[in-house]
Design a protein around this nucleic acid. Sequence first.
DNA 1: GCAGTGATCATA
DNA 2: ATGATCACTGCC
Length: 160
Amino acid sequence: MARELLGKYLVRRSRGREIAFMITETEAYHGRGDKASHAHRGETARNFVMFGPAGRWYVYFTYGMHWMLNVSSGKDGYPSAVLIRALHGVNGPARLTKKLKIDKKLNNKTANSKIGLWIEDRGVRVAKKDIARAPRVGISYAGEWAKKPYRFFLRKNAKK
DNA sequence: GCAGTGATCATA
DNA sequence: ATGATCACTGCC
């Protein structure tokens, strides 16, 4: 799913205005066994969305100032999510939430236009060769899991 | 390189 | 109740 989201558009409608940016970078957090995942230590008040059905926003606050945007994935009961790390022209997971005015209010909401934050396929074709993989960012504490190539991003030469 | 900033969670 | 930690950013 982290791969599939590349090239799709993240659309935000807030106070009557609508903006959309193509998703260019994602990371996968995959199951309880994933030491880098919030779900690794079980379900808590913060991470419960990861344990629910796919397609809901998992929004959390970190470092005292940043909101992170994820979308839940996997079957109901299987804790997993995709972190949206960058949009075309908006690099960085905390920057994009600031730009799109995303915060706690969207947590656990199903991604759709009613709630004002959703994903659209606008027909951008992403070839497999345009997708690069790398280890995830900021999780060096995760031992072997820190090395897994669960970060996906569009190569610079990919068509925009 | 590292300060900023506060919610969250484990420990007690 | 307390203290360490943190899926980051921006300025040095």
